[in-house]
Design a protein around this nucleic acid. Structure first.
Lengths: 168, 168
DNA sequence: CTATATTTTCAATAATTTTTGAAATTTCGA
DNA sequence: TCGAAATTTCAAAAATTATTGAAAATATAG
């Protein structure tokens, strides 16, 4: 397979992959493009390569910057802004975990705290099932929260080596 | 907070949560409803409780059954089908991990295998960056794959206790 | 400061995904 | 086997989400 074709396949699959994870196709494609680009790209480079409009490109680049996955790069002598993606995949994963934990897991845990305190008699089957369900989700969620915190702090080499031993 | 309100909040939040994970709102809401229902429900119960159409209800129940999160339950003396959700949250998480691994991670790893074999001179910066990116994603992906395999086999009690020690 | 290049915004449009509801099919008791 | 109840299907409509493109805002060179 030729490089051009391989790049296209990667970009398109990364885009499709993203949609399964609540990330829009274009954002994932821009990310993929920057991942396989040795040098920083401008907005125009990205527009041209992916055949998307200026507005779309701009919005999604900014979103990637918000996620901490892409950086603005200043190149001396150039007026335009350049963009480059973090290439260390372990850092990328940790960054995504960190953001999603903050945006989704933590608010969910706070909600569960409030819901667990529902009024009513625990002998009522409805109440009991509700409280039991909420409690068990909360318990697992809190555990996941702690585990992810540790993961965010961990080194890849450590992760790759040590985790396998634990999970036997 | 009253039970009715708490249930509604849970169902609605679980639905919103799902949309961030590529699961449609209704499917997540049906799942939430079944999670907090002590007894199995019929399609009509679900339609009424969530105010959704018969077709929508039917399709999403079927999808939940495909995911292995909901079971058809036969109740003697009743003609209608009843549905109930797996209540053990650890089993639910393992089931979701198992399915997503099969549907998303594994195909992605196969693609990466093919893409890694791109033609071209590794001294070419474009080629080198491409291959390096693909390789590092593949490496982490394979590691995640193994780790998830072990997790799928693990007991919750073990997970909760032991994992924390590892992640310091 | 001015002119121009560049970036950002956002209302309108397009594309995609979800939902409906009625018709077709299947199931099962009598 | 028949007929009513239950389930499934799926084309059309609605809702949601993504994309465009042009105008506004901003930044910078001269």
């Amino acid at each position: 397979m030729k490089l051009t074709e391989a790049r296209q396949q990667f970009i398109s699959s990364w885009g499709a992959f993203g949609t399964h994870w609540g990330i829009n196709r274009t954002m994932a494609q821009i990310h993929a493009l920057l991942l396989v680009s040795p040098d920083p790209l401008t907005q125009d480079d990205i527009m041209e390569e992916l055949n998307i409009s200026r507005g779309n490109t701009n919005m999604n680049i900014r979103e990637l910057i918000n996620w901490g996955l892409v950086d603005r790069v200043l190149i001396t002598g150039e007026r335009k802004e350049f963009f480059s993606a973090e290439k260390d995949i372990w850092k990328v994963v940790k960054q995504i975990v960190k953001e999603r934990k903050k945006r989704e897991l933590e608010p969910m845990l706070h909600l569960l705290d409030r819901l667990e305190a529902v009024e009513g008699d625990k002998k009522d089957k409805q109440v009991k099932t509700f409280v039991d369900t909420i409690s068990s989700i909360k318990k697992l969620g809190k555990q996941a929260d702690k585990t992810l915190d540790s993961m965010i702090k961990a080194e890849e080499s450590w992760f790759v080596g040590a985790l396998m031993k634990v999970f036997k």
